[in-house]
């Protein structure tokens, strides 16, 4: 197992963990931050998969901009999920 494969495996496992957190966390702010982390990790995975241009787009648009829009929406509504 090369260093590259180990890094990709670790990244992908962290992507899954962040995704699960984004779904199960009841605090929407935390969930959105988990989604943002997932986006960044995904961008790292894209970089490792030899797609640097996609990685840049994913980090800038897919992770940062999306998270900003989510934060704006939460700021305009409420932070906790209903029971």
């Amino acid at each position: 197992m090369t260093v590259w494969a180990a890094m990709l495996t670790a990244t992908l496992i962290m992507v899954v963990i962040a995704s699960v957190l984004a779904v199960v966390l009841r605090d929407l702010l935390a969930a959105v931050l988990a989604l943002g982390a997932q986006g960044l990790l995904l961008s790292l995975a894209f970089y490792l998969l030899q797609a640097p241009d996609v990685a840049i787009a994913q980090a800038g648009v897919g992770a940062a901009l999306t998270t900003a829009i989510f934060l704006l929406a939460i700021w305009k509504t409420r932070r906790k999920e209903e029971e």
Partner: peptide, 15 residues
């Protein structure tokens, strides 16, 4: 049930 959570779900499918 939360609408923002549903949008997060769409985001996960997309990724």
């Amino acid at each position: 049930r939360n609408l923002i959570k549903l949008v997060i779900g769409i985001g996960l499918i997309e990724s």
